[in-house]
Design a protein around this nucleic acid. Structure first.
Lengths: 206, 206
DNA sequence: TCTGAATGGATACAGTCGTATCCTAACGCG
DNA sequence: CGCGTTAGGATACGACTGTATCCATTCAGA
């Protein structure tokens, strides 16, 4: 393997090692040498494919963002055909809550990044702006549903969406700290969707 | 000042310096030497009054917990006389959201501790169990209000309280990252309290 | 076949970290 | 008045950090 190497693939491996460490031992446990050990390569290799530690951290954040994005889109797409607005909301909010071990690790890493960005300007510069696009998307979707009569006119779509996303966020915290199971958190989300859309339309109740 | 010194007062000063750093530059910026500089003393003094860095961190967490507790109790007590259940909930949830600069710093420090505890067993051992007691208190309070007819019988008090606390938690995140102002967050909480208790009982609407 | 770029192993450097030790100054108490 | 405890200044230690450098391979292209 001495010469022609796929740089993107190498970088991807290293980024995955970084996220594995961040998800299990925290962001402060992430060092160049730890990443090298986790990826099974030497320190020099990590230096070779990433100029900086900052570049490495940026790459980790980008990968994390695209993972989250992919998860939400997949779940939303899974409710194909004639997805009711309620189903869409259930899918999107369910995608935010950590369900399996992988999404738990990603959520932990994401939380670590988020917290670090609150006090570290270098992290804050890089994007943490995904939630906003999602909020806008869901708001227009809910407003449309309101005009169609799916929810009562006294609801404010923007406030409802903001609250639901904040709720999912807060529930994620409690799931990560093992105060609550994923199922318990999902039940609370379902409870609120019932109140918003009226009791579940019979079939998609889980 | 050579001999008799108030140890508790010294420790308090150092703990405050620690929380000031954690709230402004993050928990990873907290070092023995930084605390010493922030408190205007030498490194030796920090070592003298705290055997460990861990003891210092524990002290910081304890202080943070008692500050939060005090804030909630003060706001709750401020609604004296015949506080409606709605007023109590508004007070408690309002106390959780960061309002002034001080509570913002404390919330930042608390978030940093919380995140660190998710992956650092040494922190997880020390308490982060305040929310539970609050949840129980609010649940019995809401159940009583339900028996009194203040809220409709189809609400589940435990789920409602869990959701409200998770909502406040999620909103706190967004306030800390400056995605939302304190007022916007409080408005969302008020919106939900209105739905739970019926439109505000006229006067305490702000 | 030769050469030069690509790849990565080994080691070094200057800082910072938590912690430990040495030593001096100042006071309460006998 | 002296003595021992208390309070803290100064310094050092080994571990770890990000980054830089030196060097040996290995292969593609002329």
């Amino acid at each position: 393997m001495p010469k022609q190497v796929d740089h993107d693939e190498r970088r991807r491996r290293l980024t995955e090692a970084l996220l594995r460490i961040a998800g299990t031992r925290g962001l402060q446990a992430v060092s160049m040498r730890e990443i090298a050990a986790e990826a099974g390569v030497s320190l020099r290799v990590v230096q070779y494919y990433f100029t900086n530690k900052q570049a490495l951290l940026d790459s980790g954040l980008a990968e994390l963002g695209s993972r989250m994005d992919r998860r939400v889109r997949q779940r939303a797409a899974a409710t194909t055909g004639g997805p009711s607005t309620r189903d869409l909301f259930a899918a999107v909010l369910g995608a935010i809550l950590p369900s399996d071990e992988q999404s738990r690790l990603d959520s932990l890493a994401w939380t670590a990044y988020y917290t670090a960005a609150l006090t570290d300007p270098a992290l804050a510069a890089t994007g943490l702006t995904l939630p906003n696009a999602l909020e806008d998307f869901l708001t227009t979707r809910l407003a449309t549903a309101q005009q169609a009569g799916d929810i009562t006119p006294d609801r404010d779509p923007r406030t409802e969406v903001a609250a639901l996303l904040a709720l999912a966020n807060g529930l994620t915290s409690s799931v990560l700290s093992r105060q609550r199971s994923h199922e318990a958190a999902a039940a609370i989300v379902g409870y609120h969707l019932d109140r918003l859309f009226g009791p579940a339309a019979a079939p998609p109740h889980r």
